[in-house]
Design a protein around this nucleic acid. Structure first.
Lengths: 366, 366
DNA sequence: TAGCTTTTTGCAATCGTTTGCAGTGTATCG
DNA sequence: CGATACACTGCAAACGATTGCAAAAAGCTA
C-alpha cells in the first residue's frame, strides 16, 4: 500500500540500512547519498511508519493528557495548550476523559501505557496512587492541578491557598463579614486548600469562621444549587458567596436566578476559574483566575524535561505552584465603608440602582 | 522491561504461536491450553503490545477526531461522546484540534494516517478535499458538521436549513419583521445553509430580505461584535437578531451589554447551538439546538459501520441529517400581535415589564 | 494395529524500522 | 608503495506480535 523504506532503498540502489541512516540524519552517511535519498524519498512520497519505528525504539511519539472532562473551561484551555505545544515538537496528543472516576482512570491508564506513550500529564482522581507510582517507572508522568498523595510524582498545582485567600480578602475589603463558601470535595487537594485559604483570610481579618457558611461537595452544578439554597435559607444569610468550586457555579447562578436575587445588589458573587462568558455575563462575574494556561505550559515543560532526562530517574522531583490572580469585574459590591476614606465610588445601597440604570437606558432607546 | 508473549510461552512450555493463538482466542487451540495460558498470562501480568500487533496487522486501535477547537460547546459534546463510544469498543480516541486552519488540518491529517489510525471523524475546513479523498482510500473517514464539497465522503450534517428556518419563523411568529442575521462564512456548508433557511422563512412570510440586515463572517466572537454594531447602527435597526454563528454569540452579548441594551425588551436575541450556561444566563437565551450529541453518535455509528465493511469501499456513501430543535427560553419577546387572536399571553409591549418584575422581587427581598 | 481424519502444535517468515558489526573503498602517512 | 586510519556502506539480527504451512498428536474406524 504505502511506500516503505525498502522501496526508497531499492529506487536508490542502496541497502535499507543506508536509507534509514540517511533519512534519520545520523551523520553516518556521505553528504551526497543523504541528499540523494532525501530527494528520492520525497519523490516517492515516503513517510516513515511510526509503528514500526516505535516497535524498534520503544517510543511512540504519543503523549497523553488525562483530564476529568471538557466542560470545565480550565481543562479546555489545558487541552488546547498541550496539543499546541506537543504538535510543535512532533508529538501527537492523546486526550482522554476520565470523568473524575477512579475506575475509568485506572482503565485508561493501563490502555495508555499499553500504547507505549512517551509521556503523561494527568489530573489524578487521587484514588489510583499505587498504579500511578508503578507506571511512573516506565513513563514520565506529571500530575496537574491535583496532587496524588500516595505518589511522589512531579506535580504542577495552582496556588489554591493563595487564590482562595485573595478572593476572600477581596470580599472582606469590600466590607463583607458573612461570606458563604461553596467549595470542592475535601478529599482533593484543591478542595482542602481553597478552604484553608478562605479560613486564613477570615482569621487574619478577625472574623470567626462559621461552619454553617461553608458547603463542600462534588464538582457538579448540583453542589452549587444545594449549597446556595442552604446559604440563602440561613436565618442570617451571607452578603457574599465565594464559589470556589468551578462546576458549582452554574448551580449557584440558577438558584439566584430562580429566586430573583440581584447580583451584586442583594448578593455579591465571586467565582473561581475563568470562563469565556463570565466577562459578558450581566453582571460580569468577578473571579479568581487559576492560570490554566500557565499551568498547562509548566506541566508540558516539566514533562519534556523528564522525557529528555530519560532514566536519570526520580532525582529532583518537585512540586510547582502557579500563582492565582484576582480579576475584579462587576459581581461584587462594597456593602459598607471599611474606613472613612473612599468617596467617589457609588456604593449604592439602594437596591433600585441597577434597575434604574437599565430602564434609563431603555427610555433613551425606545 | 515488560513481559512479552515469549515470556508467557516459555513459562507455559509452549511455542509463541500457540501462546498467541490461545490468548487471542482463535478457536485453534485446545480448551485446556487456552485456559492454562490465560491463567499464566494473567499471573505474569502480560499485556499485549499494540505496537507490535499493529505492525503485523496494520491496525492501531486508534481512531481520530479532528475538530476546530474545544471552546465550541458542540465540539466538547462531540469529543465526549466519541471518546465514550470508542472506549467501550476498546479503541483509543486521538483528539486533534485543527483551529479551522487548512494548513494545520493538512498537517494533522498526514500525521494521523502516518500513525495508521483505524478511522477518522473530521470536521473539515473544506480546503483539503483532495487530500481527504486520497486518504479515504486507506482509512474509513466520516465528515461531521461540514461537508467537503471536493470529496464524496460519508457525511453527517446538522439540518441547518431547517434549524435556521425554524428559528427565523419563530421570530416572525413573535411579530418581528426586521430580523438581523449574523451567520458564518459563506464558503462553509453551515454558513450557506443557515442563510438559506433564514431567507426561506422570510420569503414564506412575505417579508422581503434586506441585505443590510445580514452579516456573514468568520467563526469568532469579533464577527458577532462587528455584526451587532453594524445592525444596531442601522437607520432602522432590527427588533431581533438571530445569531446563527455560534462563536459570534459572545461578541453580540458584549456589544449589547456595552450599549446597555435590554434583552428581550429592546432587542430579541436568538442563538444557534446550545451552551450549558445559556440556560442560566439572565435572560435565559433561546436557541436552535443542532443536536451535537446525536450528530456525534451518528458519526460514530457510520464510522464503525465502514470500519467493519473493510474495503467494500465506497458503495453506499450517504449524507445524513440530524434534525434541529427550537428551544424557547426568555431572550425573545413578542413585539406585536400577529393576529387578533391569542389572549392570555402577556405580550407586554411595555418595555418596563421585566424591570418592574425584577425590582419588585428586589424590594420583596431587601 | 494399521490407516485415516481431525485436532493441536511448532517452525519460520513477516510487518517496517533501527543498529551492532564487519566489510569495502579511499585518503593519509611514513 | 605498503600500512593504517577513516568514512561509508551492507548484512543480518533484533523489536513483539500474527499466521500459513507442515508436522505431531490424538481420535476413529475397520
Amino acid at each position: 500500500m504505502s511506500v516503505t523504506l525498502k522501496d526508497v532503498a531499492q529506487a536508490a540502489r542502496v541497502s535499507v540500512s543506508t536509507a534509514s541512516r540517511a533519512l534519520t540524519g545520523t551523520g553516518l552517511t556521505s553528504e551526497r547519498t543523504q541528499q540523494r535519498l532525501t530527494r528520492i524519498a520525497r519523490q516517492l512520497g515516503y513517510r516513515p511508519n511510526p509503528i514500526a519505528r516505535g516497535l524498534k525504539t520503544g517510543q511512540s511519539r504519543l503523549v497523553a493528557l488525562l483530564v476529568h472532562n471538557l466542560t470545565n473551561a480550565s481543562f479546555q484551555v489545558m487541552a488546547e495548550v498541550v496539543q499546541a505545544r506537543l504538535k510543535a515538537l512532533n508529538y501527537q496528543m492523546l486526550l482522554c476523559i476520565g470523568g473524575d472516576d477512579p475506575q475509568q482512570e485506572s482503565d485508561t491508564l493501563t490502555t495508555l501505557v499499553d500504547h507505549r506513550i512517551d509521556g503523561l500529564i494527568v489530573v489524578p482522581t487521587g484514588k489510583n496512587g499505587p498504579q500511578l507510582k508503578a507506571l511512573a517507572k516506565d513513563v514520565p508522568i506529571v500530575c496537574l492541578v491535583r496532587r496524588d498523595d500516595a505518589t511522589d510524582l512531579e506535580t504542577v498545582l495552582a496556588d489554591d491557598p493563595q487564590g482562595a485567600y485573595l478572593g476572600t480578602r477581596h470580599l472582606i475589603e469590600l466590607g463583607h463579614k458573612r461570606i458563604g463558601l461553596i467549595v470542592g470535595r475535601q478529599d482533593t487537594t484543591s478542595g482542602r486548600e481553597r478552604l484553608s485559604g478562605y479560613v486564613r483570610a477570615l482569621r487574619e481579618a478577625g472574623i470567626s469562621t462559621d461552619d454553617t457558611l461553608i458547603h463542600a461537595g462534588h464538582f457538579v452544578p448540583e453542589t452549587g444549587a444545594t449549597g446556595c439554597r442552604k446559604l440563602l435559607d440561613l436565618p442570617r444569610p451571607p452578603s457574599a458567596i465565594f464559589v470556589a468550586n468551578h462546576e458549582a457555579t452554574l448551580g449557584v447562578l440558577r438558584v439566584t436566578a430562580e429566586r430573583n436575587i440581584a447580583i451584586p445588589e442583594d448578593l455579591s458573587l465571586l467565582c473561581y476559574e475563568d470562563m469565556p462568558w463570565f466577562e459578558w455575563h450581566r453582571p460580569a462575574i468577578s473571579i479568581v483566575d487559576n492560570g490554566a494556561r500557565d499551568l498547562a505550559n509548566l506541566a508540558v515543560d516539566r514533562l519534556l524535561q523528564r522525557m529528555d532526562a530519560k532514566g536519570n530517574g526520580n532525582n529532583g522531583v518537585r512540586e510547582y505552584r502557579v500563582g492565582a490572580r484576582l480579576i475584579k469585574r462587576d459581581s461584587c459590591r462594597q456593602i459598607d465603608a471599611p474606613t472613612a476614606g473612599r468617596s467617589a465610588k457609588p456604593k449604592s445601597s439602594s437596591p433600585k440602582s441597577s434597575a434604574a440604570k437599565s430602564s434609563a437606558a431603555k427610555s433613551a432607546k425606545v
